[in-house]
């Protein structure tokens, strides 16, 4: 979506106007058939009746959404009250993804800025350095992260070796480990859009601010940041959205102790629960959440461009 804002712009010409439908048809067909229709089917499934141990019965039912939002006790016959279980799972996922996004922003922004202010011919090399790890399978990166963070792992060995800590810091199987894993998984997604934005930034604006006796940090906050805001927002979305639905990091680094949205959904289709309509409903709620985030950020983006 970083490129989305740019490439979604207006068509420049109509040279190939006559062939337009033909040109777009393959993408419509493939994506319509293999993404749009499946997602639409999922919406339908979320309103069907569950079949015991997996599958659906073609009868309309709101049971999946009811289960999500209303607590009817362990036996399902108490008076309904608000169900916090799933809201908490969603909240935890939002919190984990949010924390990972903040870590990524804190590290990623200075990095992106630093790279963008290098001489033009060495920038490519820096970008290259940041993106290479991303080409390694996410799974392997997550597993090696786990290996690194173990109580007897290299990180603790190193920290104890240089005498910063006396006993191993326990990181693995904690929320922090999950946040670290997510942060690590998607860090380049934060760096690249911010880098692109800073690279386009006109530094004479900063100079003008300096001439008006703004301090460097004031310049950063009041002049640079508003100008590169679209890149920052794009970066945050690119880290936040995939983190929200991820289940590798919670599973491998968090010890699968607590459900996150991704593992909750997976559980309905590949695990113990076998409740397809509920899994579909949770997916639809997750998708709505992502769409809300995207719409909010699009509004921010527009405001940013208005400045």
């Amino acid at each position: 979506m970083a490129g989305g804002a740019a490439s979604g712009g207006k068509a420049q010409t109509d040279t190939y106007k006559e062939a337009r439908t033909l040109l777009l048809l393959p993408s419509w067909l493939v994506l319509g058939f293999f993404v749009l229709i499946p997602v639409f089917m999922m919406l339908i499934y979320s309103f069907l009746t569950k079949e015991f141990r997996g599958g659906v019965i073609w009868e309309f039912s709101l049971a999946a959404y009811d289960q999500f939002f209303f607590d009817r006790g362990l036996f399902g016959d108490d008076a309904p009250s608000i169900e916090w279980t799933y809201i908490n799972i969603f909240w935890r996922s939002i919190w984990q993804a949010g924390a990972a996004t903040i870590f990524a922003l804190l590290i990623g922004f200075p990095t992106a800025y630093f790279i963008a202010t290098r001489p033009p011919n060495s920038r490519q090399m820096w970008v290259f350095l940041v993106t290479i790890p991303y080409w390694v399978n996410l799974l392997i990166r997550t597993v090696s992260m786990k290996f690194l963070l173990r109580d007897q792992g290299p990180l603790n060995d190193f920290l104890m070796g240089i005498g910063i800590v006396d006993s191993p810091i326990h990181i693995i199987n904690t929320d922090f480990a999950v946040q670290l894993g997510l942060f690590y998984s998607y860090l380049p997604f934060m760096v690249l859009p911010i880098y692109a934005a800073v690279e386009r930034y006109n530094f004479s604006l900063s100079e003008a601010a300096a001439d008006l006796y703004a301090s460097k940090w004031q310049t950063l906050r009041r002049v640079l940041l508003p100008a590169v805001k679209p890149g920052v927002i794009a970066g945050c979305i690119l880290v936040f959205v995939p983190s929200l639905g991820s289940f590798l990091a919670p599973d491998l680094l968090g010890g699968a102790k607590n459900f996150m949205i991704g593992s909750l959904i997976e559980e309905q289709f590949k695990g113990n629960a076998g409740n397809w309509p509920f899994g579909a409903a949770a997916s639809m709620i997750l998708l709505s959440l992502v769409l809300i985030v995207l719409m909010l950020s699009a509004r921010q983006q527009n405001k940013g461009e208005g400045v």
Partner: peptide
């Protein structure tokens, strides 16, 4: 851009169902 917007786990499950 749909595959970028829909979380991967949702695409995965939806494709499976489909």
């Amino acid at each position: 851009n749909l595959p970028l917007i829909v979380p991967e786990i949702v695409t995965a499950v939806a494709t499976l169902i489909f």
